[in-house]
Amino acid sequence: MLFRRIYQFLIVYIIGIGFLLAIKAVLSLSDYVIPGIPLVIETAGQVFTGYFFDVMNTLSVTVLGQGISIIMAFTVGIAGRKSSWIGSFIKVTAYNIQAYPIVALAPIIFILLGDGFIPRLMIASMICYFPLLLSVLGIMATPVTDIEHFYIVTGRMRWQLEVKIRAFENLSKLTTVIAGSATLAMAGTIVAEFIAANAGIGYSIRIALYQSDLAKILIALFMIGIIISIYQGILETLGEVIKVKWSISKKGEVL
């Protein structure tokens, strides 16, 4: 799973580079506009180590931001699963807020909090929080009647059991959503760094952009792609391990 993610990224990256080189060849563009392969390799030699630590810096904010948003999404999703007025209120609020582009709020956060770690973390969490919340709300608010019926009619149902049943029945969906939200968290962090920050790969891309250095940007994109692929691959592998440990394959799926 981990290697498949990396292969997939490499294929997309190579196609993208190939496309740029084709444009360069067809329009006879200089290395200043689109760098050739030797220049890209030379630039990689210069910035690889620095960019690696920048991406790791960004990743640390991403992981923390995603962790916070997962905890928040589960807390609110579990509270909002009931069809009571508070549940309906949470659902309607979540649906309305998620329709608003959170990135547009980034300047306000930077004005209020300035550059640094906290604004980056906030934006990363907010960007991946709402899609996560909608998925968790959808899962937690949908009864698994065939399993829950017994516990309800015999008076054994508790909220912890209800959450456990619904989470277990939607384990694949949950792990996919969590792995997918890593990309959103990474995008949020990079956007935050891109707008106003003093560290991270987004900050380095901004500098490269002011220098009109496409080679550096291509290297940065390569680093981001590889690291996020590894991170997503690890999340998916963890999800599989949990699934295997908690449940086992169904008879019908084997045949």
């Binding site: 065939d146 049943i165 449940s247």
Partner: peptide, 13 residues
């Protein structure tokens, strides 16, 4: 009074 039907499932954990 209890009602049970044939499509009920037990949790799989």
């Amino acid at each position: 009074i209890l009602y049970t039907y044939n499509l009920e499932r037990l949790p799989g954990w």
